[in-house]
Simulated assay, not measured.
Amino acid sequence: MTIVDKNVEYRSLLMIIGRKVCTHEVPLDPAYQYVVYQPTFENAWAQLQLDLGVFDTFEKAKQTFHEMASHPHFKDNFLFVCDKEGQLVGSAGLWPGHHFGMDRLRIHYVAVSQVHQHHKIGSSMVSKLIMKYDATPGKYPLYLATQTNSYGAIAMYSHLGFTAYLGAYEGCTQKQSEANWTLATKILREKSASSF
């Protein structure tokens, strides 16, 4: 995930991907490696999320990590990527979401350190989680929640096969969902044009 652009209007968005749409895992750059969960990641994870603008305070990020890590679902469903020096540079997970009135797994807390972005670490983690989700029985598509000011992440998710969810969900009408995506599309076009 790229840094949240606080200069862009925030509006919530959902994206979905059908089963078996993503057919292969994006290989992780050889300069990095997946590592098993370690309790010592708490501070590094909190700092990573704070640096990307996901949380307003280090304490909130740390508390969130602590709460998630105490859940039995956490260790098997969160990925951690370290560099050659063993420093945490990325993380993402499958985590229950409640946007549709029931617990459904979603892609959650995708984060890659700014210094280590543009090495496809985010794409690798998300594709790995998609493949994991597709290997479990179920009738619902995988989804994720994002926002208009995370346009870099939206572009990455789209590249992997996620599409805009335009329907209603908890706290958002279909009309509002469509309006949010109209704004997101405008932002993506503007940011894409200005990057050339």
Rank of each mutant, 00 (worst) to 15 (best):
L28R: 09
I187E: 05
E9A: 15
D134K: 05
L14F: 05
L48I: 07
L188G: 01
V35K: 15
Q38H: 13
K20Y: 08
H66K: 14
D51W: 01
D134L: 05
H99A: 11
G53N: 00
A31F: 05
W45V: 12
M15V: 10
L52C: 02
T2I: 10
V8I: 15
E59R: 09
K128R: 14
G171E: 02
Q47G: 09
A44K: 13
H99L: 04
Y34L: 15
E67F: 04
F196E: 14
A69K: 13
L50V: 04
D134R: 05
R104Y: 05
I154C: 14
Y32G: 08
T136L: 13
R19C: 01
V89P: 02
K186S: 10
P72E: 14
H99T: 05
H99S: 11
I107C: 01
Y133T: 08
H108M: 05
F74E: 11
A46M: 06
P96S: 05
L48Q: 04
E178W: 00
E190V: 04
L142E: 06
P141T: 07
Y143L: 08
Q49C: 11
D103H: 08
E190D: 06
G152W: 05
V4P: 00
T148R: 06
A46R: 06
E9L: 15
E67Y: 05
K84D: 13
W95P: 07
L28G: 11
L14S: 08
I154Y: 02
D29I: 00
Y151C: 10
K62R: 15
T185Y: 03
H108V: 08
L160R: 02
A155Y: 10
A61K: 07
